[in-house]
Amino acid sequence: MRRCALIAILLGVPRVGAALTVEPNPIRIAATFHGLSLRVSGAAAPGTQVFVSISGAALPELFNRKGRLGPLWANVGSVTVSGAPHLFLIAGITPAATLPRALVDANRLDLEATVKQASLAPAGADDELLRREYRRLKESWGAYRSFERAIRVEQGSYRGELFWPDGAPPGTYRVEAVHLREGEVVRRETAVLQVELVGLPGWIAHLAFERSAIYGAMSVVIALAVGFLMGLVFKKGGGH
């Protein structure tokens, strides 16, 4: 038994009862970061279906809304979307469409279930259409994404991979694993994922938000210096 446990540790197989793990955690965004594969793993009883989601905070987001004005399209107002996470990634052992809709909605096991929770202000008759548009916009940014059949359950554990988009802002994200058996939730576990800026991006973001006057002056001085230096380079290069 001890030998089996040792082999499992060496192979990186989570032990039965091991907590939900996300790697890497924290995600460190440095100068050349352009997204990464996140590995999720944990323990799962044989025969269970596991879905792992990662969600950002549900902060209100303000959008322009396009509509028809006679034959033309224009911004006809604004709409605030609240109650939906700004980022939502979900990976499942099977497509959520194979599960009862009520179960998917109650446990937010797909993108549709997530946007259903969004409330719109001002509310109107076309809220459903705008929720779909919100989802399509988020999908186009890579902030909402579904990874079907990306989780495998074997030998008492589950593991899978999700792609973390480069556009996700730093902050705290909630990771949740939902275990299903015969159409019922049998276990739910959560973890916290931290995303932070480091190195040059971290320094610039700190300067921009904490020392904004210095940041403004620096932006102007360097922009002008680049312009004038390029002018000098061309002059020395024998320009007219």
Binding site: E61, L62, F63, N64, R65, K66, G67, W73, N75, S78, V79, L129, L130, E133, Y134, R136, L137, S140
Partner: peptide, 8 residues
């Protein structure tokens, strides 16, 4: 338009 919503 391809999308009816755009960031404000």
């Amino acid at each position: 338009p391809t999308l009816l919503l755009s960031p404000k």
